[in-house]
Design a protein around this nucleic acid. Sequence first.
DNA 1: GACCAGGCTCAGT
DNA 2: ACTGAGCATGGT
Length: 290
Amino acid sequence: MIRIRELAGMDLEAVLFGGQTFRWERVEVGWTAGWIGDRPVRVRVTQEGLEVGPRTAQDDGLEPAARRYFDADRDYAGIRERLLRDDRLRVAAAGLDGLRILRQPPFETVISFIVSANNNIPRITKCLSSLCRLGGKPVSIDGEIEWPFPRPESLAGLDAATLRAEANLGYRDRYVAETSALVATGAARLGDWEAERTPALLANLRGLPGVGPKVAECIALFAYGRFDVFPVDTWIRQVYSQTYPSRGPVATDRQIGERARRRFGSGAGLAQQYLFEFVRRRGRAAVNQT
DNA sequence: GACCAGGCTCAGT
DNA sequence: ACTGAGCATGGT
């Protein structure tokens, strides 16, 4: 087991179940199980820091992998300090001090957010779980069988009809199959795109079937650590236009993204997460009242 | 039964 | 560059 002391204040619930990633599961009291790339792990936060325990015998290289996945070296205090000078964002971000952004494996993130399009979080989770069963190689952990996220070649080997029937992807089946094939053949080299600046990265991502402006920005944020993006989905459209109302006609998603990036600068991605979590909590609270 | 979900693609202006 | 229709599926 390793411990990352800098992450003592992390809000694991918000980070792992807030729509950045869809593969974590609450298990024994206090622990959450999932994957850091190909490593099955369980995690919890204590006053001493984030604890990451391997769920298999070998765990060499776990610490750097976990530090990268949880982006332990980013200066959140500095980013927050600048962002929260904005009074309205400070209100939205209240109680979200521990919200952070993951750096997930690119291929898993690409497929996850292709599946996320025009979909809801519980169903995205189900679809991805099915995809892993279809394309992953089962691993025995504590007497239970678990599936890592499939490799591109594995998903590329499934036809769209199978994806639709077995994973309930709907019309997204074709996008998953085609994008997996592009990655598997090397036509799309996701790892190399790490070196690109954000505009070029987004353009590359948008070349993948099923990846439009919003999904590309989610991938840039959640896999490549680009904080200078501001993905606009239906929730953000609502909360942004309420929080920062504008004169004139209703702002388009593109306009909202442009204005938000101007407002929040290099912290836009984190600001987006604050607003997303804020509006979704508000929505759940309203439902619970009725 | 309409409406919605971390929207995208494609055709028409 | 912008706008609308069509799109699978499951939940409310």
